[in-house]
């Protein structure tokens, strides 16, 4: 157990990992709260998985895979958003298609590059132990963009999530804010990929926020609590996984999942007592 803290004190890779988890948690708390109250986990899943297409192409071309991820995430967010707003009936099918096609493109491009398995695995399941200083800086930047956007348009975002028709009547451009919200999800997904990988992103995006929702009654408090919970889950998961050399991303998700299970159980126990 001491080894973790010794390494943490001396080795920058573990400091970066811890810091990466904390930075990712801020994004997941802010955006995850909107994903949970809007019940758009499936949409967020579509955005997250299609990102592999962008990562694969960027990787094949020798560019930064995270730049590719960001472009692909924003593109998927806008396509899914427009489909949701214009052709609601096909929403389900289209998201599924974008989800799978994005991944297929990614797999084909990565298979034609060197280091197929290692890279594919780290895209899919994350590798928190190899976060570079540069990546931390990008994560910080994405966090700042998210915070500024949410702070500036908090009341509009809450209004469209709560009652979209009333928001229209009150003259809010709901289509614009809906697309911006999905773009925010795209940014957060990219933030989280390095930490838990794109397969597990949805869990970290929704579980802390879903737990927080059980205890607070404002979106602002939900964001705050979800961010703190995210930090606890990523740090705890990292700590538990370190010595037995378990995959950190998967351990983090198990910690979050267990916390959600216990919290829901405790909550229903209190309610029916």
């Amino acid at each position: 157990m001491l080894e973790f803290f010794n390494t943490l004190a001396t080795q920058s890779f573990l400091q970066n990992a811890l810091l990466g988890g904390i930075l990712a948690s801020i994004g997941c708390g802010l955006t995850g709260s909107f994903v949970v109250v809007n019940r758009i986990g499936y949409m967020a899943g579509g955005i997250a998985h299609s990102v592999l297409g962008g990562m694969g192409i960027a990787y094949y071309l020798g560019l930064n895979p995270f730049a590719g991820a960001l472009i692909a995430a924003l593109l998927a967010a806008i396509i899914i958003g427009v489909i949701k707003l214009k052709w609601q009936h096909q929403e389900d099918t289209t998201i599924g298609a974008i989800w799978a096609v994005g991944m297929a493109i990614g797999i084909i491009f990565i298979s034609k590059s060197d280091g197929y398995n290692t890279n594919l695995m780290s895209f899919l399941f994350g590798n928190i132990l190899i976060i570079s200083d540069e990546q931390l800086f990008i994560m910080l930047l994405l966090d700042i963009i998210t915070i500024i956007f949410v702070a500036a348009f908090y009341k509009q975002l809450v209004a469209i999530s709560f009652d979209i028709e009333f928001a229209i009547v009150r003259g809010i451009n709901v289509n614009l804010f809906y697309l911006l919200l999905l773009c925010l999800i795209a940014i957060t997904v990219v933030l989280l990929i390095q930490v838990v990988g794109l397969i597990l992103v949805i869990a970290l995006l929704t579980l802390p926020a879903a737990i927080a929702k059980q205890y607070v009654h404002s979106i602002g408090m939900m964001m705050l609590l979800a961010s703190v919970l995210g930090m606890i889950f990523t740090s705890t998961g990292l700590f538990i996984s370190y010595e037995p050399d378990l995959p950190a991303g998967a351990t983090i998700i198990l910690v979050a999942g267990l916390a959600y299970f216990i919290s829901s159980l405790a909550k229903s126990f209190i309610r029916f007592k």
Binding site: V158, S161, F162, A167, R170, I172, V216, H217, S218
Partner: peptide
């Protein structure tokens, strides 16, 4: 109505001020 939404009465009423 989404009565499961985490929001206070006052914040709900304040939404009427939008626009």
């Amino acid at each position: 109505f989404n009565s499961d939404f985490p929001i206070s009465v006052q914040d709900t009423v304040l939404q009427g001020r939008l626009g």
